[in-house]
Design a protein around this nucleic acid. Sequence first.
DNA 1: CGGTACGCCTGAAGGC
DNA 2: TGCCTTCAGGCGTACC
Length: 284
Amino acid sequence: MRNYTSDAAFPAGFRVPELPEVEAVAREVRAALRRSTIVDVRVHRWSVVTGASRQVDRLLLGARVLDLVRHGKQLALVGADGSVLVVQLGMSGSFGVVPASAPLEPHTHIAWTLDRSRELRFVDPRRFGGVTWLRDRTALTTRWSRLGPDALALPSGWFTPITTSRRAIKAALLDQRTVAGVGNIYADEALSLVNIAPQRPCSRLNEHHFGALGRALGTIMRSALASGGSTIRTYRRMGGGAGAFQASLRVYGRAGQPCVTCSRPLESGLVAGRTTVWCTACQS
DNA sequence: CGGTACGCCTGAAGGC
DNA sequence: TGCCTTCAGGCGTACC
């Protein structure tokens, strides 16, 4: 199972599962669950199950997962009984299929026993993530209709709702109602790529800015997804602080270090309540 | 409307 | 070295 946190090579807080990581997890789990039967489920910590439906049989999904879909950073298992289980990885969650004999790592909150001696496990040390049971796909549609378009498939007019907003562009990007799937890392990276200051109000950006920003988001997400798996494995093998992923970051985690474009030291501060790094010279 | 703060939680990292 | 403090972050929510 891919694990972003409890592995020593992936210290918690270094890399959060953002959209590309969640999509990678979705692909793995989708493939692993094909034609699988859910034999049993063990819930070690009910508090990660949100909503009013803390019943074991509901988590069995009718003994079979028919589909696994994703929107932004949310995953959803669609069960044979028509119910849906939304899975959010939060800050430190991981989700994957492992041999049933694999040692139960700490903070394993839910384990589904599958056929062929396998288990699907939800692990989340910090418990910012969780699962939510929904009655049917309509409830999922309703839930996801509150989110903006997925950052991996942005429509051309994605920015229309925020063009007159006076909030900082970074605040709007982090708001999942604007675009689903953008987190702190990629917000900073995208803004850096298109030379827009994170605190600049949306209303002071034009269509060219928004267009470039949307393309930058797509490019970053796609390249992270394409190289993600191998980057993660490479980084793991290296087991230290200087992985390929880190090397690909322009601003995130690089406060005080030279801007890759102009070499001036990068500024850091709080924007939208989040640690933000940007170049005061390049970005306006 | 938007901003600010808080709570949730663990473990890494820094200070002494 | 070991203990203690600080910080990080997604996301919901309360409050100005």
